[in-house]
Nucleic acid binder design. Structure first.
Lengths: 338, 338
DNA sequence: CCTGGCACTCTGTCCCGCCGAGTGCCAGCG
DNA sequence: CGCTGGCACTCGGCGGGACAGAGTGCCAGG
């Protein structure tokens, strides 16, 4: 167990290193933080912290920098979440309130997060899985061709074309539309399969095939759309990454383009509360020198999707976490209102 | 007027510089291209080319590099468009054929372009302006609340919420839906305003306000959606930009995030044929050290949107132009089929 | 357990000199 | 008149050496 002062030293090292981007030495530490002890003492503490793996030296006789393990301890025990100031909160709210539709909400959220944190922002579109059906519309485009439109409570619209096995009259279509909506409107997506299971039985034999086809397309849509979309922004902030540029930035840009990677990344994060993944804690190799701060957001108390930022492990964790949390909260409110 | 040989020298300089990324000198030129003359002669030619502003020296006694003006001449007069090889064409076709919907087509196109050119790819979604209406759907969500869904022939779906000035019955809604579709289905977006102008007149007085509201929302959607969307990819290729990294790359990343800038960029490009904007020819300052190669694409003979790539002025113009042209052609085919 | 002192180790940087690539110019040649 | 070889000059890049500064580890004393 580390003594209280050693923890303070670690905290000071993290703070200074985040601020200056340079390895921090014992003398500078005692000058900038009044620890009440001499540099020599701090040196002993640093040696201990290094033994434990919390900090490291780039080379002999250089200052120390925190390791991933050091940041982890810092985040878990030494630093809180820095709340946004009142003006900041107002600014967030104003900015998000201007959104006109779901796309706009997501787009604004990305911009906002990127600006607030000066890092790369990632926002997942509200997931279908946890949302509910507002309406299902069926349109006859040709005798044996139906367009299926699915509208969700988060304002998202998905459409699919259905080729029917047999011609399907307007009357039957209207009938199906009515029955379908009465069963699934307002229900959760996950419940839909169960709810429509026996629906074909109420129809004429010659229409059953078509009904079944439409239903299976609907279910397909629900599943497929779990291949969720996301939006990223603030990549220009990557230029503030470090000096050893191309090498660090390249894999990050690649990762950001691979939506699959990002979705997995967000998916792995805990479902409730804020998750911080530091450096090598990220499964994807290209992100080993970055940290990901993410949190779920949603219209009710329940999270429907996640958002977060990707930045260098050397980031201002309290500030970033504060911004991420605040933005998630307000986005949730906006979604609940609309 | 420049002599034939001087043009050859310019061409050789561009080719070598693009290949090596290093200023090219007279000796190296005579060795790598058999111009049939001595370095001294080439030096005289280079001096002339420099006087005319086609090439420049980074410092006294260094080799020459092409200027924007030099690239311009190269593109206009000295180099053709390098056609894709047969296997490449097959690969393009195979890759694009796998797409399942419009989003997928665009996404695949971006990836493909980025890979082929090893640069940043930009693909504009097919514009609504030039496409036609497939169907307009109206859904009653509440007595005085209607959802408007617009489906285009390119498979795009847009939806808007409409708050009506007065309650609107199901029967009226069905009536409006039917009349609206009979007028606009299959018509071009640009014709819609004219076609629906007198529609409210056929309705009861108490419904006219609502009908007008719905129509104006529809028209709004058409206009607003001219704020067209686009997709970009291959930003990781920016890392191959040059040595003076952060300075060059930052404004480019910023420009890429500003969809407005990009749309303007594509919009400024000529409507027919391929457009190449080199360095300072780009109005946006952040892109002064990049070139933009763009071309329209579309399902018929007509362009419905544009696509292109953004790369360093020092790029392989013939190859890039060939790839851009080929991709645009195949995307057009895909759109025509679906 | 903390402190001041001391010797040691590195890195980053500046300076210098050299090398090589490239140039411009000129006189000569076909 | 245009091409060529030769020549003197310029300049950036690179390697070596010296130096300063920051930081460390260790030790003896309070």
């Amino acid at each position: 167990m580390l003594s209280e002062r050693r923890l303070q030293v670690l905290r000071a090292i993290v703070q200074d290193y985040v601020g200056t981007e340079e390895p921090v030495g014992s003398k500078a530490l005692t000058e900038r933080h009044n620890l009440g002890v001499s540099p020599a003492t701090v040196r002993n503490d640093m040696a201990a912290l290094e033994d434990e793996g919390y900090i490291a030296q780039p080379h002999t006789s250089a200052g120390r920098i925190p390791t991933d393990k050091g940041y982890r301890l810092f985040v878990d025990k030494l630093a809180g979440v820095k709340p946004m100031s009142a003006p900041e909160r107002r600014a967030i709210q104003n900015f998000l309130d201007g959104a006109v539709d779901l796309d706009d909400v997501v787009a604004r959220t990305v911009r906002l997060l990127a600006q607030l944190t000066r890092q790369v922002a990632v926002v997942q579109y509200p997931s279908l899985t946890r949302s509910t059906v507002r309406h299902v519309e069926l349109l006859s485009l040709a005798p044996a061709r139906v367009m299926l439109v699915l509208i969700t409570d988060t304002g998202r619209v998905e459409q699919r074309m259905v080729d029917c096995p047999a011609p399907f009259g307007e009357a039957s279509l209207a009938d199906l539309r009515a029955r379908l909506n009465s069963r699934v409107a307002g229900r959760r997506f996950t419940d839909v399969p169960r709810l429509v299971e026996d629906l074909p039985e109420g129809f004429d034999v010659e229409d059953r095939g078509t009904v079944a086809t439409v239903l299976s397309t609907l279910l397909e849509t629900l599943v497929e759309e779990n291949e969720e979309r996301l939006m990223i922004g603030g990549t220009a902030n990557l230029t503030r990454f470090g000096h050893d540029f191309p090498l660090t930035i390249r894999p990050v840009l690649e990762a950001l383009e691979e939506q699959v990677v990002l979705l997995k990344l967000l998916g792995e994060a805990g479902d409730s509360g804020m998750t911080v993944r530091i450096g090598h804690e990220n499964a994807y190799e290209g992100l080993n020198s970055t940290s990901v701060v993410s949190v779920g957001y949603g219209s009710g108390g329940e999270a429907v999707a996640k958002l977060g930022v990707v930045g260098p492990t050397r980031m201002d964790y309290p500030g970033t976490m504060g911004a991420v949390r605040a933005v998630a909260r307000y986005v949730g409110q906006i979604l609940a209102e609309s």
